[in-house]
Amino acid sequence: MMAKLPTLTERLNALRECADAYGADVARWPAARREAFSDLLDTDEVAVILDEARGLDGFLNAATAPRMSEDLTNRIMAGYAAPKQQAGLFDFLRGLAPVVRLAPAGVLAGLGALGIASGLMSASAQDPLTPEYEALAYVDDLSPVAIDEDGGLEWDAE
């Protein structure tokens, strides 16, 4: 089976991408690209494409690199401090000092979480109140209520 040959439009699009990537100067293109497009370089379509690329090249060449003053370079270098070498265990422990300062806060947070968890666990382990005793808690102030010997409520109907 034969491979499909690219059309003229596809080749011109590929040449346009090559000109955008490498510029209008064909000598700066990779050798394989120059060879692949050598038969098209004398056409009017390619002349238009290369003129557009020359405009982009001119724009990019006109841009200058930002200039830094020597004072800026000196200020940056003055602010840079070389990292210190840790000599041993004592220096390592000294480096842990900020972490150790936060230890009391971590302990308090852990104890608070432990207290909340134990309170939740103990509350869920208790038997819930029966509806009668809950009702008694709400209506205790409103009307006198008696509890019989079986633990049932006797309502006073007035």
Rank of each mutant, 00 (worst) to 15 (best):
R94Y: 01
V46N: 03
A3E: 08
V100I: 15
P66F: 06
R75F: 02
I116V: 15
P6I: 06
G106V: 02
E134Y: 10
K84V: 14
E52I: 13
D141S: 11
W155E: 04
I147H: 04
A47N: 06
D140L: 10
A31V: 15
P30A: 07
Q85Y: 01
L102Q: 15
L8C: 05
M1L: 07
D150N: 15
P98T: 03
V139L: 14
P104N: 11
A135C: 10
P6S: 13
T7Y: 00
G79M: 09
M2R: 10
A19K: 01
T43W: 00
A146R: 11
L89Q: 07
S38H: 04
V46M: 07
V99K: 14
R101M: 12
D39Q: 05
S118I: 14
V26Q: 02
G152V: 12
R75M: 07
A125P: 01
V145N: 06
L60D: 11
R67P: 00
L5A: 14
N74R: 13
L153D: 04
A81W: 06
R101E: 13
L102H: 14
A125H: 08
A36S: 09
L89P: 01
R34S: 03
E70F: 10
A24F: 02
T130C: 06
L142C: 09
A3Q: 06
A97V: 14
T130A: 10
P30M: 10
M68E: 05
G55R: 14
D156E: 15
E10M: 06
V145G: 02
Y138W: 07
L50Q: 00
P98S: 09
W155Q: 02
L15R: 02
L108Y: 04
L108C: 08
A78N: 11
L108M: 13
G112L: 15
A123N: 11
T73G: 03
A27K: 11
D150W: 01
L102K: 15
A63Y: 03
D156T: 06
S124L: 11
Y80C: 04
L41K: 03
A97S: 14
D141I: 02
A63S: 08
G151I: 03
A146S: 08
L40C: 07
D25H: 03
G55Q: 15
A117L: 12
L96W: 04
